[in-house]
């Protein structure tokens, strides 16, 4: 309950990285991590939606506790996330068509990204208050972007390497992700102090 903002941030971003430690958001992770540019944009879009849906989830949780209907949690979260994505899409389209074009198909796909729903559920389970939830969402989003960019960078380099035909594609990405996950274990204990 009384974790400091720094701890929450480091925990969400590095120690319990959503992709490499919790395995959330693996689908876009495998799908769009081929190029650095798309990976960065995807990360940005996910972070943005995470921030908004985290705030919404906080409000819904308070409301559901007030009307004593916890069994509606999952259904209302997913509906809110889907409509948030839709709203964000319309808003960006209106305000900045250039950004909208560059995000393309990734924006609607965020709805089925488990990292977003996972974030909403985790923050409720941990009982964070409003500012804490915001920091948690920020950390998780930046951690997701970091992991995506690291993989994209490594995969761009591997394009030119000679690997056996069987290993190319998903298998290679998974092996790289495994090694990265090992590396991220080095952060364990950082967020406790």
């Amino acid at each position: 309950m009384n974790e400091s903002f720094g701890n929450i941030f480091i925990n969400a971003c590095l120690v319990n990285n959503f992709v490499l430690a919790y395995f959330l958001g693996i689908c876009p992770f495998l799908g769009v991590s081929g190029k650095m540019e798309t990976a960065t944009r995807m990360g940005g879009a996910v972070t943005f939606v995470m921030l908004i849906s985290s705030l919404c989830a906080f409000g819904i949780h308070a409301l559901l506790v007030a009307i004593d209907a916890p069994y509606l949690q999952l259904i209302s979260y997913i509906v809110v996330i889907a409509s948030t994505v839709q709203l964000v899409e319309m808003f960006i389209k209106k305000m900045s068509p250039a950004l909208f074009r560059s995000l393309g198909i990734f924006l609607p796909l965020i709805t089925t990204n488990c990292a977003i729903l996972g974030l909403a559920l985790f923050q409720t389970n941990k009982g964070y208050n409003l500012p804490q939830s915001f920091v948690y969402a920020l950390g998780a989003g930046l951690g997701f972007t970091l992991a995506l960019m690291l993989i994209a960078g490594l995969r761009e380099q591997m394009e030119f390497a000679e690997v056996p035909r069987m290993v190319k594609g998903t298998v290679l990405t998974l092996i790289i992700a495994g090694i990265l996950s090992l590396a991220f274990m080095g952060f364990a204990g950082l967020g406790n102090g």
Binding site: M166, V171, L174, A177, G178, M185
Partner: peptide, 25 residues
């Protein structure tokens, strides 16, 4: 121990996909 840690999940899945790819090839 590494196999029950997150990294082991990635490695094991990679291994199974490798076996399947080998079989498909």
């Amino acid at each position: 121990i590494v196999m029950i840690l997150p990294a082991g999940g990635f490695f094991t899945l990679a291994l199974w996909l490798l076996i399947f790819n080998r079989w498909k090839v």
